[in-house]
Simulated assay, not measured.
Amino acid sequence: MNDPILRISDLHVSFHVRGGEVQAVRGVSLDVNRGETVAIVGESGSGKSVTAQSILRLIPTPPGEYKQGSIEFMGQDLLTKSEQEMEAIRGQEIGMIFQDPMTSLNPTLTVGFQISEVLIKHQNMTKAQATSRAEELLTLVGIPNAKDRVRQYPHQFSGGMRQRVMIAIALACTPSLLIADEPTTALDVTIQAQIMQLLKDLQAKTGTSIILITHDLGVVAETCDRVVVMYAGKVVETGTKEEIFRNPQHPYTRGLLRSLPRLDHSKSEPLIPIHGTPPDMSAPPKGCAFCARCDEAMRICVDNDPVNYTISETQGARCWLHDPVCKKEGASA
Results as ranks from 00 to 15, higher is better:
residue 89 I to L: 14
residue 12 H to K: 09
residue 148 D to I: 07
residue 193 A to P: 09
residue 29 S to W: 10
residue 299 R to P: 00
residue 150 V to Y: 03
residue 289 A to L: 09
residue 71 I to N: 05
residue 287 G to S: 08
residue 86 M to Q: 10
residue 249 Q to C: 06
residue 161 M to H: 07
residue 91 G to Y: 05
residue 322 H to Q: 14
residue 283 A to N: 12
residue 157 F to M: 10
residue 297 A to E: 12
residue 39 A to D: 07
residue 204 A to C: 04
residue 173 C to K: 02
residue 13 V to L: 06
residue 166 M to H: 04
residue 323 D to N: 14
residue 111 V to Y: 04
residue 155 H to Q: 06
residue 38 V to A: 02
residue 320 W to I: 00
residue 138 L to A: 02
residue 326 C to R: 15
residue 50 V to Y: 07
residue 251 P to Q: 04
residue 288 C to M: 00
residue 40 I to E: 10
residue 140 L to S: 13
residue 231 Y to Q: 03
residue 285 P to T: 07
residue 74 M to E: 15
residue 50 V to L: 08
residue 24 A to C: 12
residue 144 P to I: 05
residue 47 G to V: 02
residue 137 L to T: 14
residue 62 P to H: 05
residue 93 E to S: 13
residue 256 L to Y: 04
residue 194 Q to T: 02
residue 105 L to A: 01
residue 122 H to S: 01
residue 155 H to R: 02
residue 296 E to W: 14
residue 57 R to T: 03
residue 289 A to T: 00
residue 184 T to K: 05
residue 51 T to E: 03
residue 184 T to E: 13
residue 314 T to L: 12
residue 127 K to C: 10
residue 75 G to W: 12
residue 62 P to L: 04
residue 32 V to N: 01
residue 207 G to I: 10
residue 171 L to I: 15
residue 15 F to L: 09
residue 45 G to Y: 06
residue 96 M to P: 10
residue 257 L to S: 12
residue 255 G to C: 00
residue 116 S to F: 01
residue 225 D to I: 12
residue 197 Q to D: 15
residue 87 E to I: 00
residue 154 P to K: 02
residue 211 I to K: 03
residue 5 I to W: 00
residue 230 M to Q: 07
residue 317 A to K: 01
residue 121 K to L: 12
residue 71 I to Q: 08
residue 58 L to K: 07
residue 326 C to K: 06
residue 121 K to W: 01
residue 315 Q to D: 03
residue 103 T to E: 02
residue 84 Q to F: 09
residue 327 K to M: 14
residue 225 D to W: 12
residue 138 L to H: 12
residue 110 T to D: 03
residue 61 T to L: 08
residue 118 V to N: 00
residue 204 A to I: 03
residue 160 G to C: 15
residue 242 E to D: 10
residue 72 E to P: 06
residue 246 R to C: 07
residue 41 V to R: 11
residue 256 L to S: 06
residue 110 T to R: 13
residue 159 G to C: 10
residue 257 L to N: 08
residue 309 Y to C: 05
residue 279 P to N: 12
residue 62 P to M: 11
residue 311 I to L: 03
residue 219 V to P: 06
residue 97 I to T: 13
residue 158 S to F: 02
residue 182 E to S: 05
residue 328 K to W: 02
residue 100 D to C: 08
residue 318 R to I: 08
residue 295 D to W: 04
residue 131 T to F: 07
residue 112 G to L: 08
residue 29 S to V: 08
residue 48 K to F: 08
residue 222 E to Q: 13
residue 110 T to Q: 01
residue 271 L to I: 14
residue 16 H to I: 15
